[in-house]
Design a protein around this nucleic acid. Structure first.
Lengths: 213, 213
DNA sequence: TTAATTTAAAATGTATACATTTTTTGTCAA
DNA sequence: TTGACAAAAAATGTATACATTTTAAATTAA
């Protein structure tokens, strides 16, 4: 087992779940002690997390957990809005019925297992979207979308129910599948755009309220 | 002086200039010896370059210089085509006359100093574009565009004159400035789109010819 | 000769140790 | 008290050393 990769995953998740607070300053030693690994391992993970935007170099000493900002959240949503419909458009003609079925399976999971922790619900939600984009075959685009999703996920604050998977969302997802199965690509892309747009508005409004409080 | 950062820059440039060939497999020790640093330093740089797509993990041992593929080049161009006009649109209303003047200065440099090595011409060309996007204020988008440009730059193969800065390109750049100065945002974005589209076509065609030869 | 298994070499992952830089603390003078 | 300067503590950058894994080689049996 590669400790490096383990620590990378763990640390990223801990940031995502806000076990390390936004804007908090961490030291290599602190993390090495906390996770019981040597500083070398911390450095490797740190490097990767910095270049993915989870951490930022903090002056000459220490690293800072990426702080929250409404502006950044809006930017991330904007990028999703720009790129996900593109990915879907490229993937649409390649999407096999079996793949569409797979995506539907994920939807069913979401609908049935209602007592799942919201962290997992978020993951499943992305898995659904990801399955639809996958066949576009653009590695850079897909990697980028993965990163965007993870960054947005930070802002969702998984303990909140407000932004969880709603009935409306479920219906839209099903409709998306239907459109794709009928090869109505334009309509599907448009629906997706609307879907992301709504989710973005919900998120940014929520953040603004929270900031005010 | 941080050796880590130095090596990162140097190694990236060496890959860009194809001193390390595409698809070549490198070892940490090899690089440590070649650049006269310890393996730790190599690891730090390696990690960063992997997550930016210059290198890829190669099985369990070694790293591979990202190979060339026409498909990847096309994808990178597509992403530029999707994102740069967006950045320009967001920046357009914020662009001050002084900033437009700065961009024009870069154009003049390109026009006058005709004996510049093509590597530097490429850099100046990007500097011009970058100045126009900067005021959009979207850090993720700008970082992304920087990375895209650098990756595309690999494919340009700076020794070639074919893809160098042409008169047509110069004229289009100037026209872009004029449109922006008159706040004709839509026209400017459209011109930019055309500009990138042409450059992309030139590049991919060139790659396809090269592959056939 | 060839295939397979064992053995040696090399490369990476990780830890520890040292050097340098940065930050903090503490003392002393104004 | 405050400000500046010096000393010490802490954190990071880098190197070396060790352990583990992976690759290559070599020896042996069929």
């Amino acid at each position: 087992m590669l400790k490096k990769q383990q620590l990378y995953q763990q640390l990223k998740q801990d940031i995502q779940l806000q076990h390390w607070a936004p804007a908090q300053v961490l030291t290599q030693q602190q993390l090495a002690a906390h996770y019981s690994v040597s500083r070398i391992v911390v450095r490797d993970a740190q490097q990767q997390l910095i270049s993915e935007g989870w951490l930022s170099a903090h002056g000459k000493a220490g690293m800072q957990v990426a702080p929250f900002s409404v502006a950044e959240a809006e930017e991330l949503c904007m990028l999703r809005l720009q790129l996900e419909p593109l990915a879907l458009r490229l993937a649409a003609s390649e999407l096999s019925f079996s793949q569409l079925g797979q995506a539907e399976d994920v939807l069913r999971q979401l609908a049935q297992q209602t007592n799942m922790p919201s962290y997992q619900r978020g993951e499943l939600n992305w898995q659904f979207h990801r399955l639809l984009y996958q066949p576009c075959g653009k590695v850079h685009l897909l990697r980028l979308l993965d990163q965007l999703h993870q960054q947005v996920a930070r802002y969702l604050g998984y303990q909140e129910q407000v932004l969880a998977y709603t009935d409306t969302s479920a219906a839209e997802h099903q409709q998306l599948i239907n459109l794709l199965r009928q090869r109505q690509t334009d309509a599907a892309c448009h629906l997706l755009q609307q879907h992301i747009c709504d989710a973005s508005a919900l998120l940014t409004q929520h953040l603004k309220n929270r900031q005010g409080a």
